[in-house]
Design a protein around this nucleic acid. Structure first.
Lengths: 136, 136
DNA sequence: CGGTATCCTCTCCGATACTG
DNA sequence: CAGTATCGGAGAGGATACCG
């Protein structure tokens, strides 16, 4: 499915996009929060155990890894498998739905990589303009 | 430019993706914050004045609209044009760079619309499992 | 190993008031 | 009209301690 883009200001189309804004922001907030992307990205390479993820995502606290995984699981993007072994073993992996999300995220990843220098440059120019100098 | 995807666990490729994670999260945090998407989406339909945007994005405070626009301007995604008229007039519009971002974001928008029901369903099932009932 | 519970801090952001 | 300055509440998230 691909939603119509507003070539003109057709109000019905704009309204439709307004209505989905909340759904979209919902998704973007999920994906845009501090840890989700890193976790999903790591899981993109295959199933991982809890502490494996913890090590793979530097800086994440146990609390936040747990929380992030719970949300992803609740949304049907990640599956949690418990194996009754000793020591206990828990695997997390992306569901098919999670994988389709990952593809879209990679679209953004590519953009970020592609235009990172442009953004840095724009920032430098902006900052240079606002703080003209510190010279005599 | 399109970055290689890890078909196997080739560590150099994975490392490359780790290194870009901060850039990417940078972008996603920008796009995923509370207001950026709505503002960019509105600007996608054409140039807008400050208070025009304010009305078009329900719930945004003056403070946050200003802040959001400043960041977008600093990153080179939005251009701010001041016209010396009475009353003073300021226009905001997407730069070409901003428009390329919008395209990628729409990739995510489509995904959100396409799979919104799946996610809702997953949530309901998850919640039903965790709160088995409230019946006698 | 794989979590939960608690506390406590720090940042985001809304409300409000003022300016050019 | 288009902002800036300041304050205060709420929530995200880190540190720590404890459990199965």
């Amino acid at each position: 499915m691909h939603v119509d883009r507003p070539a003109s200001g057709a109000s019905s189309v704009l309204k439709a996009r307004d209505e989905m804004t909340c759904q979209v922001r919902d998704v973007l907030n999920r994906v845009g929060d501090k840890w989700t992307l890193s976790v999903v990205n790591e899981l993109g390479a295959g199933p991982r155990r809890f502490n494996e993820l913890r090590r793979a995502v530097p800086g994440i606290s146990q609390r936040m890894l747990t929380a992030t995984l719970r949300v992803l699981e609740r949304d049907g993007l990640v599956i949690r498998s418990v194996y009754a072994e000793v020591p206990p073993r828990v695997d997390y992996e992306l569901t098919p739905l999670g994988r389709t999300l990952l593809e879209r995220v990679w679209g953004l990843v590519d953009w970020a990589v592609e235009h990172h220098d442009d953004i840095e440059g724009a920032r430098d120019r902006y900052d240079a303009r606002r703080a003209p100098d510190n010279s005599p």
